[in-house]
């Protein structure tokens, strides 16, 4: 019989394990604490507003620092509206770029394109804002001037122009759309790459064309992941502050035309926070709380939808 080889004695006892465990738990609790603390700060900061207006603050419009009277509905609506419109523009482009990169582009083209798309996410939002002011706003102003010269067009409610400033809902929506493309695009690209080869081949073997393989086999398989990317984009769009504040016009009212100036939760906080106090400050913090809630709701809904859409058998 050969002699059994003994494992060398461990350098540290289990003490190291305990210390590490303690550190990890502490760090994890820190995150929970930060979360709870932000809720507390937002609620206590906005308390003056909540106690004065109650639930009415959420469900009425009419924000007027001049009359020292505040309400949140128009900001909530504008926030959701700009974000959803931006996604309607961005998602088809993003998914198309993901499909191009994964299924059509030759390798020498796929890598640079995919890198450029991701680079869009690395540009600071103030740069987008500047670009929107100096490049997009003049173009949109041009459209507005044309509409103003044409009374018939101007009579169409959705296209009505009040002030041809080039700033307003449409400008914010377009810049937001460009800003959120990389999130949906890069996640879609990754999940499309993860679709197993045998799924593609199953469709090819049934006599599917390339387009049908993408449409019937790849996209359905990847749909939960793509939706995850869309939700991430939605989260970004809801909270985007700088670029939106720079071009949306900051008018506390619901837009009735795509050219109307309006304001989102984030943009009004950014534009009024500096010179506010008293009830106005409290109301801005209350708006912050609403934005926080909105993001939470979006996240939880997204998780639920993704769980439902993920085909059984490929759940992780």
């Amino acid at each position: 019989m050969t002699e059994r080889i003994k494992a060398p004695p461990t350098r540290l006892g289990s003490g190291g394990d305990k210390v590490f465990r303690g550190i990890i738990i502490f760090l994890a609790l820190c995150i929970v604490a930060i979360f709870v603390l932000s809720i507390y700060q937002l609620v206590s900061g906005g308390w003056e507003t909540f106690s004065k207006y109650g639930l009415g603050f959420f469900f009425t419009s009419g924000w007027s620092p001049a009359k020292d009277s505040y309400a949140a509905l128009s900001f909530i609506a504008s926030t959701v509206l700009t974000s959803v419109l931006a996604l309607i523009i961005a998602v088809p482009l993003a998914v198309a770029s993901a499909i191009f990169i994964t299924e059509y582009a030759p390798k020498w083209l796929a890598e640079p394109v995919s890198y450029l798309v991701e680079l869009l996410a690395a540009i600071p939002s103030v740069i987008y804002g500047l670009w929107a002011i100096f490049v997009m706003a003049p173009i949109i102003q041009g459209w507005q001037l044309q509409i103003l010269q044409n009374p018939q067009l101007n009579a169409i409610p959705l296209l009505h122009v009040d002030i041809p400033s080039g700033r307003g809902l449409i400008t914010a929506v377009l810049i937001l759309a460009i800003m959120v493309i990389p999130y949906t695009a890069s996640i879609s690209r990754d999940v499309i790459r993860l679709v197993p080869r045998d799924q593609r081949e199953a469709a090819y073997a049934l006599g599917a064309t390339k387009w049908e393989v993408i449409w019937k086999a790849i996209l359905p398989y990847a749909r939960a992941g793509i939706l995850g990317g869309v939700i991430l984009s939605l989260g970004r769009a809801l909270g985007e502050t700088m670029a939106v504040a720079m071009v949306i016009g900051n008018r506390a009212a619901l837009p009735t035309s795509i050219f109307d100036a309006t304001a989102t939760l984030a943009s009004v906080i950014a534009s009024e926070f500096g010179e506010s106090g008293g009830l106005q400050l409290s109301s801005l913090i209350a708006l912050g709380f609403i934005l926080f809630l909105l993001s939470l709701v979006v996240n939880f809904t997204a998780r639920a939808i993704i769980a439902k859409l993920t085909p059984e058998g490929i759940k992780v």
């Binding site: 197993p196 045998d198 799924q199 081949e201 199953a202 469709a203 090819y204 073997a205 049934l206 006599g207 599917a208 064309t209 019937k216 086999a217 359905p220 398989y221 749909r223 085909p311 059984e312 058998g313 490929i314």
Partner: peptide, 19 residues
């Protein structure tokens, strides 16, 4: 595409469309 309709295929691992 026509060829593949006339010549079907079954793969190593079962690969039904999961959705």
């Amino acid at each position: 595409v026509t060829i593949r309709r006339r010549i079907g295929m079954v793969f190593q691992k079962p690969n039904p469309f999961p959705t």
